[in-house]
Amino acid sequence: MADAVRMLSTLALKGAVQALAGQYQAAGGVRIDADFAPTLALLDRLRAGEAADVVILTREGLDEVAREGRVVTETCVDLARSFVGIAVKAGAAHPDITTEAAVRATLLGARSVAYSRLGASGILFAKLIEQLGIASDINARALIIPQGFTAEKLVTGEADLAVQQISELKQVRGIEVVGPIPRELQTPAVFSAGRMAATKKPAEVDRLLRFLASPAVAPALRESGLEP
């Protein structure tokens, strides 16, 4: 579209991008035509030749496509840090997740835990339950979704706990975020943006990247569950 910038973005930034799109357009920027999916799915789509003007991925994912020449390295900018959290259905008791021992007991006590196969949160959680020595117990009754929002399984009653980036959990109504998994048990994901090498709108994209990396977007990032 001539009047829009085509964006492919990781799901973790969906809330923030949707909140900021109108603000950006009101300030004279072009419309943002965004499509959201986990980083690994977006990498597959980009390598299959899908066109975009700007991408938001994990820093590791962005570095990969920059090395492949798909993204202009000089335009890459870090936008936000994100932590993996745990959520329950609205109104449910909030379990203790303040320590490693508490997280282990909470996970083992759940009827079912929903987590995603793709994306930074799913990869981290799979490693975490291995590290805690409870992978076989949890996976025997887990709901592992290919992609999308794990907290939807709380609303349908299919799971007691949902694990995902806090910014992704907050996209689902009818749930409550208990809090982050203890920080000593996780490494925050860094989400970054860059201009696609093949874009026909470099000036528009560079303006958008400056906006997304500016202090003005910090409130929207925090509101969506991210850290600027």
Rank of each mutant, 00 (worst) to 15 (best):
M7P: 01
K14G: 02
A16H: 12
Q18K: 05
A19H: 06
Q25L: 14
R31P: 01
A34D: 14
V54G: 03
I56L: 09
R59E: 14
E60S: 09
D63G: 10
E64A: 09
V65L: 07
V65Y: 04
G69S: 03
V72D: 04
V72E: 07
E74P: 07
E74D: 09
C76P: 01
L79G: 01
A90N: 02
A92K: 12
A92F: 01
D96A: 09
T98I: 05
T99A: 06
E100W: 03
A102Y: 04
R104Y: 04
A105S: 09
T106C: 08
L108C: 02
A110C: 06
A114H: 11
L118N: 06
F125A: 02
D137K: 11
L143Q: 06
T150V: 06
E152D: 00
T156E: 00
G157T: 01
G157H: 02
V163W: 10
I181K: 13
R183K: 11
L185K: 11
L185I: 03
T187H: 00
T187A: 02
P188H: 12
P188F: 02
S192M: 05
A193M: 11
K201H: 11
V205N: 04
R207S: 12
S214I: 08
P215V: 15
A218S: 00
L221C: 05
